[in-house]
């Protein structure tokens, strides 16, 4: 890591983050039930149960870091991702994010099958939260990387799933977002394209973009990340060098299985 040569600038700051969900087993769920309850005066009696998905998380991710977040299914990795990207709001605590986030959570989010690939670039970029100028500037690079040739002008409904992923990945990675959130999307497309993706992400890493990867794969963390954050039982149980974290994750999985 080059922490000694360049000053650390925080990119994502999480302080005391707690997220609780309400499991309201007696929620009406339908207008019919709601009206029946209303007529019987039973509306207020609904019991509210809360459970914490994440409790009191604090960590800072600095500019240019490549951080892998690991944990078993259901420990709240996806919830954390949604909190960082601003879909959910924290129950307690704060999240400070510096700059636009490119979520590579769903590639080609909101692609419309009836529109051409070219039209979908603008649609997708705006859905990801980017503006007109940024998108226009990125179009040549997006087209170049996706390598779809003249297919770009035909409707996306005629694309293979691999072509769609190529376009989606290309859009998300060429919009100059300082932060990338990746949720195990790299395991798609053919091998050649996978390698191209990994190369692209490494290139972005070298350009000092902040990258957060959510994964189950210790190998990926070992090979690509600078740092690993392990989450278990709603809390951070490890935050340190990637190789160490990946090994700990493997041990942890063995113990519990």
């Amino acid at each position: 890591m080059n922490s000694t040569s360049t000053p650390k600038v925080p990119s994502i700051e999480v302080r005391g983050l707690t997220k609780k969900f309400q499991v309201n087993t007696t929620r009406p769920g339908s207008l019919k039930t709601f009206l029946v309850r209303l007529s019987r005066g039973q509306l207020k009696s609904t019991e509210k149960q809360e459970f914490s998905v994440l409790s009191d998380l604090s960590f800072t991710i600095h500019e240019g870091e490549f951080v892998g977040i690991m944990g078993r299914n259901g420990v709240g990795k996806s919830t954390l991702l949604k909190l960082i990207s601003g879909i959910y709001e924290p129950t307690l605590g704060t999240i400070k994010v510096k700059g636009t986030i490119a979520p590579l959570i769903e590639l080609g989010a909101g692609f419309n099958p009836d529109l051409s690939g070219y039209e979908n670039i603008f649609l997708n970029a705006s859905i990801l939260g980017f503006g007109r100028e940024v998108t226009k500037k990125a179009v040549p690079n997006i087209l170049n990387f996706a390598g779809l040739g003249d297919h770009i002008y035909s409707p996306v409904r005629n694309y293979s799933s691999g072509m769609q992923v190529r376009l989606g990945f290309s859009i998300a990675t060429h919009l100059d977002a300082p932060i990338l959130l990746i949720d195990e999307v790299l395991a798609v497309g053919d091998l050649e394209f996978q390698n191209k993706c990994i190369k692209k992400i490494k290139e972005l890493h070298q350009q000092r973009r902040t990258i957060v990867l959510i994964t189950h794969n210790p190998e990926a963390v070992r090979n690509h990340c600078d740092r690993c954050v392990l989450i278990d039982k709603h809390q951070i149980i490890f935050d340190g060098p990637a190789a160490q974290g990946a090994s700990l994750y493997e041990q942890n999985m063995d113990l519990n299985s």
Binding site: N112, L115, S126, R132
Partner: peptide, 18 residues
């Protein structure tokens, strides 16, 4: 505005192009 523009033009295109 850019998002709204794109979503509205998508809807209008689909409505009127097909």
């Amino acid at each position: 505005k850019f998002l709204i523009f794109n979503l509205v033009s998508r809807d209008l295109k689909i409505k009127y192009r097909r």
